[in-house]
Design a protein around this nucleic acid. Structure first.
Length: 750
DNA sequence: CGTACTAGTCTTTTT
DNA sequence: GACTAGTACG
């Protein structure tokens, strides 16, 4: 008999309500994963449902992995036949089996955002679209939106036929999709869209899956887009045993096509749906929850819901304002050191959250300076790094001969004397014959205009084909190692004497380790399967419990996670909420940012420290922003703020509408002071122009010990004045001698 | 064909 | 400020 008594009343109600549509509105930290896992256990143990008939869909691999683990623990035997996967992985699984029915090859490749951009670049060239007039990113976003709405190129053309402004978009979408098809490639959005297309086009495939998935659960339902909504609807249509879990207040992916109406209108779409709210929070202190509730209550059109907790400890949320982004970072790092020293918290208990990835740099510098272990989540995805993409492109070329993009990427990497001109000629030949780029390479001697390059191209093609045959009796790791050896790829990096050569080689080593781990975990795994897994993996998945480093990440990345101590930084109007949303003047956009703030606040268990900076460098420009409107929405009684008054001096009244004036009027702490009508001018702001660290002379000289953000500690051996900057030579303890510009290197004396 | 320098863009968030 | 694509030159 299973343990339902671990659940509270509402959770239990949700766990045992198994027939028909169910909407679980689960507030932050209300134990939704626990509820879902118990529900699955209940289905199997009490309702005698075959695990084979159950499916649980999530958005991130991390969420899927976590759920898988918890299900395995509670269900035990048979749990492996439950589908616990992300939307994308689910679709790949379906497509790998049936995509040939809609005219693709079953060993299709998956293009990431980078690949899509390359394709679009080629499309622009081919259609002679002026990249100054149209932006690739904009066109891609438009296509992505269309795909999320299940519009193929033809549907899109039809829908926008009357709009002259969209003419080029229509052409670009057509050509883009045609290129993908020729390359036997699918982008992220295609994975969902084409699965829906397949299920609609092939009733017997749909029936097969409908029959199989008698019970379907969807996590983070508020983040589903139209395509995902339709996919779920199709799959659940036969049995209607659809349980969706979500929180409309945590819908933060509108830019990715998420449609908050999917959750708000669930009861309309499923009139007999049962709705259960989970409002008890097991994570945060009451003060943190009060702050979160206060902020989110400013949004309209929510499903009302109020989080409460039984937790007693109650430390007010703290707000602090700093002079600059740099000071903010340094002070926060100092504070984390103090928390650790006092033995209250470990580094791994602390997280620093920010709105944009660019904000991580100031923190990174502060952490390096203090030698505190830290880990930045997100940013440049490991698999998006140049050297990793190169190696993967080799593997893709070996795996799928039709992936032109991969072939073109590595045909001259490392340099083998095949230049842009030759590549164009091969491409033209391929286009005229209607064959793939790689096949054209194989018959390079047939292309008369190539001249000497033909021989080189031929050799390249031969090498790939040799690897292809080798693949039959050697593992992925073996192939990759041989590949690196044959191509002298690592030697090439070493010879390039770029200052990140060591990093890049380390990255390749890490890739080899990942391949090895993959092969250990999946002894039967093929190269295709490995590449597929890699394509759907993000950096966030690397976050593991028990990490002893301070975590830094965007608020988006933090969704679904929790930390004892949270520093919510950069709370300024223009940063969070971002300029884009403020300028758009669209209240809906502001509401989305507010939900983002709500997500940020509710990540904290014990301590929440909010901060802002008076001045901040953004895109190489110093900006003075007001304290975020979201901070002002937190009532004073839940907040404790300390503005460093001593850094501020009483000065003349600035002219109407000046930034300094606005700043103080907007500052919640000054607003309530007796002299609130008057205005302060912070001294440092007036002086700050040109006083930035970059224009200062180095404070070190030859013989000094210095620390660098990447290379660690070293000794300065030479300094030479050049027209633009000072050239510094440093012998680092770990990586040896490097020559760099002082302005660029930002060395710190120790 | 490859390198070195320049100009332009980017920054909101990601599976 | 940082990165990238594009261009001029060797």
């Amino acid at each position: 008999m299973m343990q339902l008594d671990e659940l509270n009343d509402k959770q239990r109600e949700a766990a045992v309500y198994v027939d028909g549509p169910l909407l679980i509105l689960a507030g932050a930290g209300s134990g939704k994963t626990k509820t879902i896992t118990h529900r699955i256990a209940y289905l199997i143990e009490e309702e005698n449902v075959n695990p084979y008939n159950i499916m649980a869909i999530t958005f991130t691999n991390k969420a899927a992995g976590e759920m898988r683990e918890r299900i395995d623990r509670i269900v035990g035997f048979g749990s492996e036949s439950i589908w616990v996967m992300t939307f994308h992985a689910t679709c790949v699984r379906i497509l790998r089996r049936f995509i040939d029915q809609i005219g693709y090859d079953r060993n299709f490749t998956i293009y990431d955002t980078d690949d899509s951009k390359s394709v679009m670049k080629a499309v622009f060239k081919k259609l002679q679209i002026d990249p100054k007039q149209y932006k690739e990113a904009t066109v891609l976003r438009e296509i992505s939106n269309a795909k999320n709405e299940l519009l193929g190129p033809d549907d899109y053309a039809l829908q926008n036929a009357a709009d002259f402004g969209k003419k080029r978009y229509i052409d670009a979408y057509r050509e883009y999709q045609e290129t993908l098809r020729k390359s036997n490639a699918l982008d992220f959005d295609d994975l969902i869209r084409l699965t829906v297309y397949l299920l609609k086009a092939c009733p017997e495939v749909l029936e097969n899956y409908q029959h199989r998935f008698r019970y379907i659960m969807v996590d983070e339902y508020q983040d589903t887009n139209t395509a995902q909504f339709v996919l779920i609807k199709l799959l659940a249509d036969a049995h209607k045993n659809l349980c969706v879990v979500g929180d409309d207040d945590q819908s933060i992916y509108k830019f990715r096509g998420a449609n908050i109406k999917n959750i708000l209108n669930f009861e309309k779409n499923y009139p007999d749906a049962k709705v259960i709210k989970l409002e008890q929070n097991y994570r945060s202190t009451q003060n943190i929850l009060n702050a979160a509730n206060a902020v989110i209550s400013n949004n309209t059109g929510r499903k009302t819901k109020k989080l409460w907790t039984a937790r007693e400890e109650d430390m007010p949320v703290r707000f602090r304002m700093y002079d600059s982004g740099k000071e903010e970072a340094e002070e926060i790092v100092d504070e984390i050191i103090r928390l650790k020293r006092r033995g209250e918290y470990e580094y791994g208990d602390c997280a620093i959250l920010y709105r944009t990835n660019a904000q991580s740099r100031a923190f990174e510098e502060a952490f390096v300076y203090q030698s505190i272990p830290y880990h930045i989540v997100g940013g440049v995805n490991f698999y998006a790094r140049k050297e990793i993409k190169d190696v993967l492109a080799y593997l893709k070329t070996i795996d799928n001969a039709k992936d032109d993009l991969a072939v073109r990427r590595i045909i001259n990497v490392p340099k083998r004397g095949i230049g842009a001109a030759s590549i164009t000629k091969v491409q033209e030949y391929a286009d005229s014959r209607g064959i793939s780029f790689f096949d054209a390479c194989t018959e390079a001697e047939q292309i008369p205009t190539l001249g000497k390059a033909a021989e080189k191209i031929k050799n390249f093609s031969l090498m790939i084909r040799v690897f292809r045959t080798r693949l039959e009796d050697s593992g992925i790791l073996e192939i990759t190692q041989k590949l690196l050896e044959d191509t002298q790829y690592i030697e090439e990096i070493q010879a390039s004497d770029e200052d990140d050569a060591e990093d890049r080689i380390a990255n390749i080593d890490e890739l080899l380790t990942k391949i090895q781990l993959y092969e250990e975990d999946n002894p039967e795994g093929t190269l295709s399967e490995f590449l597929e897994e890699v394509a759907l993996v993000s950096d966030l998945d690397a976050v593991d419990e028990g990490d002893s480093r301070v975590l830094l990440m965007t608020v988006h990345s933090a969704k679904g996670l929790e930390f004892p101590v949270v520093y919510l930084s950069g709370m300024e109007d223009g940063v969070f909420p971002s300029y884009m949303t403020i300028n758009s003047g669209n209240e809906e956009d502001i509401e989305e940012e507010r939900r983002l703030a709500y997500v940020a606040i509710t990540r904290a268990k014990d301590i929440l420290a909010i901060s802002s900076a008076r001045a901040r460098m953004i895109r190489g420009e110093t900006q003075y922003n007001a304290v975020s409107r979201f901070v002002k929405e937190i009532p004073q009684e839940y907040l404790k703020g300390e503005v460093p008054i001593q850094r501020v001096r009483w000065d003349e009244v600035p002219s109407q509408g000046s930034k300094a004036r606005d700043f103080f009027r907007e500052n919640p702490y000054h607003a309530n002071r007796t002299d609130a009508g008057k205005t302060y001018v912070p001294k440092k702001i007036v002086l700050s122009k040109g006083s930035d660290l970059t224009s200062e002379k180095p404070d070190y000289q030859v013989g000094d010990r210095v620390v660098h953000i990447k290379f660690g500690e070293g000794t300065v051996t030479a300094m030479e004045q050049t027209p633009r900057d000072i050239q510094v030579t440093v012998v680092f303890d770990s990586v040896g001698q490097k020559i760099m510009y002082a302005m660029f290197a930002k060395l710190k004396k120790i």
